[in-house]
Simulated scan of single mutants.
Amino acid sequence: MKRVYVNEQWCLGCHLCEYYCAAANSGLADMTKSLKGRKIRPRIQVEGDSSVSFAVSCRHCEDPLCVKGCIAGALSIIEGVIVSDRTKCVGCHTCVLSCPYGCVTDSEEHGIVQKCELCVGNAGKAPACVAGCPNRAIVFEDRGVPAHGELAAQGGAR
């Protein structure tokens, strides 16, 4: 399955992926109108400092703790992508606490959570964060999913 991966050595820490993500998930076609005068709430976050930067987004785990922890059934897996049903979310934040990567966050709606859904409505194109990355530090590709024991040996999936 294709997933978003980050090549940290190429990340400039410019945060453009965050802006493209926020705009893509705003429901508005025009980036300026979707972001101007608003606090952005992207589903991808750039972390780091001047020496190393990297983007953090949902890893769409094979055995997702966030889905298991969701008491309302608002998170589910559809064709390998973990998606949220905002109408079912009760704002308990169990999924936020369950995600070991910190990839489930608050949305603009009070108490409702959001997470990367790989821009599933993007008609098969790359997610907005990937398309907007000027240095190609964020990629959308199938690298195969390592077995559980291999994940720790690799230092985590990236």
Rank of each mutant, 00 (worst) to 15 (best):
M1T: 13
R3T: 14
Q9C: 12
W10I: 12
W10Q: 13
W10E: 13
L16P: 03
L16A: 14
C21T: 08
A23N: 03
N25P: 09
S26D: 01
G27H: 01
A29V: 11
A29L: 14
M31T: 13
M31D: 15
M31C: 14
M31N: 11
K33P: 10
S34Y: 06
S34L: 04
K36H: 13
K36L: 14
K36A: 15
G37N: 09
G37L: 08
I40M: 14
I40A: 13
R43G: 04
I44Q: 03
Q45R: 14
Q45Y: 12
E47Y: 13
G48S: 08
S53D: 01
S53C: 09
S53R: 10
S53E: 10
V56H: 00
S57T: 12
C58S: 00
H60T: 00
C66A: 02
C66P: 01
C70E: 02
I71H: 09
I71Q: 12
A72Q: 08
G73A: 03
I77L: 09
I77D: 11
I82S: 02
S84F: 11
D85L: 07
T87P: 06
C89S: 07
C89H: 06
V90Q: 11
G91R: 02
C92Y: 00
C95H: 05
V96Y: 02
L97Q: 15
C99W: 01
C99Q: 03
G102N: 03
C103W: 05
C103E: 05
T105Y: 10
G111D: 06
E117G: 10
L118N: 09
V120K: 10
G121P: 12
A123R: 11
G124S: 02
A126T: 07
C129K: 01
C129Y: 00
C129V: 05
V130T: 04
A131E: 09
G132K: 03
N135Y: 06
R136A: 11
V139C: 05
D142M: 00
D142P: 00
H148K: 15
L151W: 08
L151Q: 13
A152H: 07
A152W: 08
Q154L: 15
G156H: 01
G156E: 01
A157N: 07
A157L: 10
A157I: 11
